[in-house]
Each structure stands twice: as structure tokens, then as C-alpha cells.
Write a protein that binds this DNA or RNA. Structure first.
Length: 536
DNA sequence: GTAGGGTTAG
């Protein structure tokens, strides 16, 4: 009776297709009701596995499913909790992961003093802490496991701790974990080495990284897709585009490996950072011949290139293609659309050098100075181009397209200092019932921040919450900054407390040096640190 | 039904 939907669900769980798994579960429940049979727990867990693997992670679906299981059965088991906590880890929801872990212990307390959470659940929680940049918490949990006799520590937990260190920028700690695996006799696998390669790459220790890659293969551990993407990214970030493309070629011809979209995205990133437009086009062509589909990251990377060139026509075209491919823009998309300052500065520096060379050769290039003067309108005619998408018939088939176009327009208008237009566009969204997102409100809030309108910012936050939209770090950042700047200290503190309760803006005290890498602005950072001192 | 790992921004 479950065979057909079970197979659908299994495939959905493997590919991370949460909507597909959820609808299969719904069909199973209906069939179960007709026949008076309850859907087995295993299928609920399989659906949660799909939520965990879904991109972006379907953490809200996981929350709903867990609640449903608690209220109507089947009661969650250890596997259920593992999947839910892992889904939160992938969604960088470490606070939720921590809460759910506590709830699990409470639920299972009735099983007697001999019951202990499995090593896998601990691994997922450590991973959640790591993704949230909470190395102290990850380390504390690991050490308590190390000291206890209930669980046997395996390669997986060590790997989770190692990558927690890397994700929190604690490279010395990462190296210590790597050494400790050796002394404790824990086997190192490809994930272990990938963590170390990433750590060395982020420190720009390219030679050490290449040596580590060699010793990995000497130890009989073969590189996988992740290994290649880490290596390509590191070479791209240190400007060695030739080595990056050579590695891309290697993985394409490797018999046991498949060049994934992530690997192509790493290579594209290398080209974009180097300002190598021909390289980008070449990689895109190879990607197409290899039959690899673009992801949202691909489009975001291409947007970075177009906006660095201030080629707004191309940026608009890429944004449209992104929507036509069925992707919903994320925070990064909107940043990339309006231009990454560092990349724009690099490109202008290259142009300046070109001009210098041209002048030496007696050629005049007067039009460049004009394109560089962006003080009045930083994104030129981009608002006009994005606005034109609202009349684009091709987009009409894309679900939610009006909202996506409006979200882009809001951000672009804000960046172009067209504040009255921001407000008008937002009002239009309300009156025409265009779907709002967290991005809608973030653009509105940062534009209020720019105008120092703290009351309006507060009202926008209230309205956002009443619409059931969950604020993120950028939302709180804008609110806290504007309140602080206008001397609204109590309000700023209240927002900061709310933000921290949601798991944002946590500083860690690391050898007396505060770790502020997740905090966008100096203002927010100061505020967060002031609070920590008070708490101490 | 096998944990853990990767790409884009600030």
C-alpha cells in the first residue's frame, strides 16, 4: 500500500526535494485513513530527511512536521530528532537546534536513566553550533562527550568539531582537532582532510594546502567533489586562476568524479574575482556541454560580474533569467545585483592602468572618467531597467514574479538614493497585494536607516512581524543602527536582545579578542560588546 | 535509511 509513494519519497529524500516528499506523505496519510492504518514512523523520518537535504533547507517544514508528530503521532524517535536538528544546522538555526535537543531530552526522560542521545544527534548539534559560528559551545559539548562513557566518539563527531572550528575562523583549533584524531586513533577520512584544506585555503596558505592534498592521497584518502571545490575556491581567492581552471579540467576528466554545479560555481567565482570575462564565458560553455544546470549561486556569481562592470543591461538580463529558471532571489542576489564594491574598485583600478598605458602610447580615452563618476546615481539606469521587467510578458508564468521584481526594484532604488521611490514602491506592493518577503522589509528598513527615521523603521518591523515574516540579521542590524544613531538606546538594546534571542550577533570571547565577524556594522558590534561586558 | 564536508556577499 505504501510502495509507490514510498519510492517517490525515497527519491525525494535523496535529492532533497522537500515539497515532493511532503506531498507523498500527505497521500500516504489519506490512504492510511481510508484503510484504518497509521503511516509508519519511518516515512515521517524520510520526509524529514528530505527537509534536511533541501536547498534552501526546509527548516520551517521540519518544525511543522515535528509538531504534528508530537500532537497526533507517530511519536518522534531518536532518528526524527536527528533529522530535525540536522535540518536546523543546515539552515544555520543553532538556537532552534539547541532548543530541540533539550526538548528531545525532556521527551525521552521517561525512558529511564540508561537512555542517552545518540552520537549522531550530538554530531548534528555540534555542526549546528559550528555553522552558527559558536565554536565555544561546539567545543564544550564535544569535551563533555569526550569525558563521558556513554558514547563512542567516531570520525563524524571529530569532523563536525573540526569544521565548527573552521567555520568560526578558529584555525589553530582546527589544526589541534586534526592532530588529536591521530593521537586518539580516530580514522581520518576525506571529510577530515577537506576541513583542513578549507582551513589552510582560508588562511591563504596555498603551499600548505597543496602539501596537505598530497599527504591526503599518500594516506590513501582519495579526493572527492568537495575537495576540488575547496581547492578551486582557494586558488581563485588568491588570484591563481590558471591553477583553478586546471583543477576544473582535472575533475572533468576524472573517471570516478562528477563535475558538480558547486565546482563550476567555484571556477566561475575565480574568473569573476580575477575580472576575466573570457574565462567566465569559457567555464559557462563547458558547464553547458557537461549538462550541469545553473544554480542560484551561479546566477549570483554572474550578477557580481555584470554589476562590477556596471553593465546594468546584462545584470537585468541575468536577474530575469534567474527568475525564469524558477529561483527565488536571496539576500546575496540583491547584494550582487547592485554591485560588490570591492569588485567594482578592482575593475576600475584595472581600467585606470589601461588608460595610463594608452596615454603613454598617445591614445586618449576620455569616456572612462564619466563612467567612473557614480556619486549621483550609483547604479545608473538600473532602476529603469528593473521597472521594465514589470511589463515583461515572459515573466508572467513565473509564480511570485511580481514580488521578486518589486524586491529588486526596492533595493536598486535604495542603493541609487531614490528614497521617495522606495516608499512609493512599497506602498504599491501593499495596495496591489504583491507578496512581501524578508527582503522587501530589509530594503525598506535600510532605506529608513539611511534617512535616520527610527520611528518608521520600528513601524515597518511591527508590520513585518504581523505579516508572519521572520526578521533576519540584516533586519535587526538596520533597526539597531538607526535607533543607536538617533540616541534611542533603550530601543536599540531591546532589539539587540531580541536579535540575540533569535541567535544573531553572538560575540565570542576568544583570548580576550572579541569575535565580531558575523556583525555587519561597527555600531551593532559596539552595542553587542557593551552588553557582554554588562553580563560579565 | 549511513554522520560529517563544498560554491556566491558583507
Amino acid at each position: 500500500m505504501w510502495a509507490v509513494d514510498g519510492a517517490v519519497m525515497l527519491r525525494a529524500a535523496d535529492t532533497g526535494d522537500a515539497p515532493e516528499a511532503i506531498s507523498a506523505l500527505q497521500r500516504m496519510k489519506k490512504a492510511g485513513e481510508r484503510n484504518g492504518v497509521a503511516v509508519p514512523l519511518a516515512f515521517y523520518n524520510m520526509t524529514l530527511r528530505a527537509c534536511k537535504r533541501s536547498r534552501p533547507p526546509a527548516s520551517a517544514d521540519a518544525t511543522r512536521l515535528l509538531r504534528e508528530m508530537r500532537e497526533h503521532g507517530p511519536g518522534p524517535d531518536a532518528k526524527t530528532y536527528h533529522e530535525v536538528i540536522a535540518a536546523y544546522a543546515r539552515a544555520i538555526e543553532w538556537k532552534l537546534a539547541e532548543q530541540t535537543f533539550e526538548e528531545m531530552k525532556r521527551d525521552f526522560r521517561g525512558r529511564g536513566p540508561t537512555w542517552h542521545p545518540s552520537v549522531r544527534v550530538y554530531t548534528s548539534l555540534i555542526s549546528a553550533y559550528g555553522k552558527g559560528g559558536q565554536f565555544e559551545k561546539a567545543s564544550e559539548l564535544f569535551e563533555s562527550l569526550f569525558a563521558s562513557s556513554h558514547v563512542q566518539l567516531d570520525t563524524g563527531v571529530y569532523n563536525a568539531l573540526l569544521s565548527a572550528a573552521v567555520n568560526s575562523g578558529r584555525y589553530k583549533d582546527a589544526a589541534a582537532v586534526f592532530e588529536r584524531m591521530q593521537t586518539e586513533g580516530v580514522r581520518r577520512n576525506v571529510t577530515t582532510y577537506n576541513g583542513m584544506l578549507q582551513s589552510l585555503g582560508r588562511q591563504r596558505r596555498i603551499r600548505d594546502m597543496e602539501n596537505m592534498s598530497q599527504s591526503m592521497q599518500r594516506a590513501g584518502v582519495m579526493p572527492n567533489e568537495t575537495t576540488y571545490s575547496v581547492l578551486i575556491t582557494a586558488h581563485g581567492n588568491s588570484g591563481n586562476i590558471d591553477r583553478a581552471l586546471e583543477l576544473l579540467h582535472q575533475v572533468i576528466i576524472a573517471p570516478r568524479l562528477h563535475a558538480t554545479a558547486v565546482i563550476f560555481n567555484s571556477a566561475l567565482g575565480a574568473c569573476v574575482k580575477a575580472g576575466n570575462l573570457e574565462g567566465t564565458q569559457r567555464v559557462l560553455r563547458v558547464m553547458e556541454t557537461e549538462g550541469v544546470r545553473s544554480t542560484l549561486v551561479t546566477y549570483n556569481t554572474l550578477l557580481m560580474e555584470a554589476s562590477a562592470e556596471r553593465d546594468w543591461v546584462r545584470a537585468t538580463k541575468i536577474y530575469k533569467e534567474l527568475l525564469l529558471s524558477g529561483f527565488a532571489p536571496d539576500t546575496i542576489t540583491l547584494d550582487c545585483l547592485c554591485g560588490i564594491e570591492k569588485l567594482q574598485a578592482c575593475r576600475e583600478e584595472r581600467l585606470r592602468e589601461e588608460i595610463k598605458r594608452a596615454e603613454l602610447e598617445g591614445i586618449d580615452l576620455p569616456e572612462f572618467e564619466r563612467t567612473c563618476d557614480v556619486s549621483d546615481s550609483p547604479v545608473g539606469n538600473l532602476p529603469v531597467l528593473i521597472r521594465a521587467l514589470a511589463d515583461d510578458r515572459e515573466l508572467e508564468e513565473v509564480p511570485g514574479w511580481r514580488g521578486f521584481v518589486s524586491d529588486a526594484l526596492l533595493r536598486v532604488l535604495h542603493v541609487n538614493n531614490e528614497y521617495a521611490e522606495v516608499e512609493d514602491t512599497f506602498k504599491y506592493m501593499l495596495t496591489s497585494d504583491v507578496t512581501r518577503t524578508v527582503h522587501t522589509y530589509n530594503s525598506l528598513l535600510i532605506s529608513y536607516e539611511a534617512r535616520k527615521e527610527w520611528q518608521k523603521a520600528g513601524e515597518a518591523m511591527t508590520q513585518m512581524t504581523s505579516e508572519g515574516i521572520v526578521p533576519n540579521a540584516l533586519t535587526f542590524d538596520a533597526l539597531i543602527d538607526v535607533c543607536e544613531e538617533m540616541g534611542q538606546w533603550d530601543r536599540a538594546t531591546t532589539w539587540l536582545e531580541q536579535a540575540q534571542a533569535a541567535g544573531h550577533f553572538q560575540c565570542e570571547d576568544d583570548l580576550g579578542v572579541l569575535d565580531l565577524h558575523r556583525i555587519r556594522s561597527a555600531g551593532t558590534a559596539q552595542n553587542a560588546c557593551a552588553r557582554i561586558r554588562v553580563e560579565e
